[in-house]
């Protein structure tokens, strides 16, 4: 299934770093996300966008995952030549990722 089917996300930016939350609609799906959506898997999925490392933080209380993608915004909000300089639309790039049913 696509992550879009079971989770929602919002992107944020800090300089050249992109943050992506991943929040299951149903908290019961959190363990599934924990297992399938590793930092490595996200780095692989977003390889065309993220030049640096991807770090994953776990927030079991919410529950949610937070991904911090370094060197992901072609230099950062203020000087990037891309259309979406903040990378705000990239939440939906993460949700395009497929995981096993």
């Amino acid at each position: 299934m696509k992550l879009y089917d079971i989770a929602h996300s919002r992107a944020g930016d800090k300089g050249n770093t992109l943050t992506l939350s991943l929040i299951p609609y149903d908290p019961d799906n959190y363990p599934r996300l924990l297992k399938a959506v590793t930092a490595e898997a996200v780095k692989k999925h977003l390889h065309a966008l993220v030049e640096g490392d991807v770090l994953r933080y776990e927030l079991p209380n919410l529950p949610a995952l937070q991904f911090v993608c370094q060197q992901a915004l072609t230099g950062g909000v203020t000087t990037s030549l891309t259309m979406d300089t903040h990378g705000k639309s990239l939440s939906y790039a993460l949700l395009e990722m497929w995981i096993e049913d």
């Binding site: 929602h8 996300s9 919002r10 944020g12 930016d13 800090k14 770093t17 943050t19 939350s21 929040i23 609609y25 770090l55 933080y57 927030l59 919410l62 949610a64 937070q66 911090v68």
Partner: peptide, 16 residues
């Protein structure tokens, strides 16, 4: 809860 979770994590690097 869903809108609050999105906002809580918005632009946050290390949540701790």
């Amino acid at each position: 809860l869903a809108t609050a979770k999105e906002q809580l994590l918005y632009e946050v690097m290390d949540p701790s």
